[in-house]
Design a protein around this nucleic acid. Structure first.
Lengths: 119, 119
DNA sequence: TGAAACCCTCACACTCGTGTGAAGGTAAAG
DNA sequence: CTTTACCTTCACACGAGTGTGAGGGTTTCA
């Protein structure tokens, strides 16, 4: 599949797909004319990258973390250095905090909306 | 309280506090010599701004939304135009989606950590 | 009085994730 | 053959956040 199809299937712009490649998060094949060629698994992979980005992880961290979190469920332990594990733990905790803040603010907005509706 | 104390109490740098002011998110008093003066409520206010920013709302939206979400719990209905309400609803839903993604990715990382620990 | 620790504005500059468009090559269909 | 829809790289620009520094005022305390 070429970049346009992947973009359509993941909802990620071509631009961003190229950016993720530039950042070393994905490395598609190239065919003779230079076009990028993506295999099926890139759909999942790209979706996961988006998820992690939305989670607030910078590409720098994602680059380190992705090899561990590889899809499908065959977890790779190869590169799980203690530093990496500590990093992952910190990120997981940061995500928990982010979720809490997010939920709290969503409740605040939700409560406001309810209050206005019942006014 | 002056900017240094607020920075210390909220964990937000002076630089950013000035930036939020520049963006119209907070408007501290000034005393005669030009120093910014913050009342107690700014601690909450600034924390909430950070929360909303972390939640992915741009300052542009926060600026519109903050007057409605004012602390403490005395909700202001004054500026609740239908457009604003629709905006808030959309943002709330976007936050829900973001929370889901975040939670899913946290689980993925958590599962990985558990798997590595139990190896 | 002087030094330390605040504060002010202004401004340059960098990162990061994105959008957008230019200039050009390629492929498929009329 | 030409049009259309892809693809390529390159580059400028934005918003949000952030660091840093210059140049200058104020407060506090020894």
């Amino acid at each position: 599949m070429r970049i346009g199809e992947l973009a359509e299937r993941t909802g990620i712009s071509r631009r961003l797909l190229r950016y993720y490649e530039e950042q070393g998060l994905i490395t598609p094949e190239r065919c003779a004319n230079g076009y990028r060629v993506y295999s099926e698994e890139f759909v999942d992979r790209v979706t996961q990258i988006r998820g992690l980005l939305d989670a607030g992880l910078p590409t720098r961290i994602i680059r380190q973390v992705l090899p561990c979190l590889n899809r499908p469920r065959d977890i790779h332990f190869t590169d799980a250095t203690p530093e990496m594990l500590a990093l992952l733990e910190r990120e997981r905790d940061a995500m928990s905090r982010r979720i809490e803040v997010l939920a709290r603010n969503r409740e605040a907005i939700g409560a406001y909306l309810v209050a206005v509706r019942d006014r």
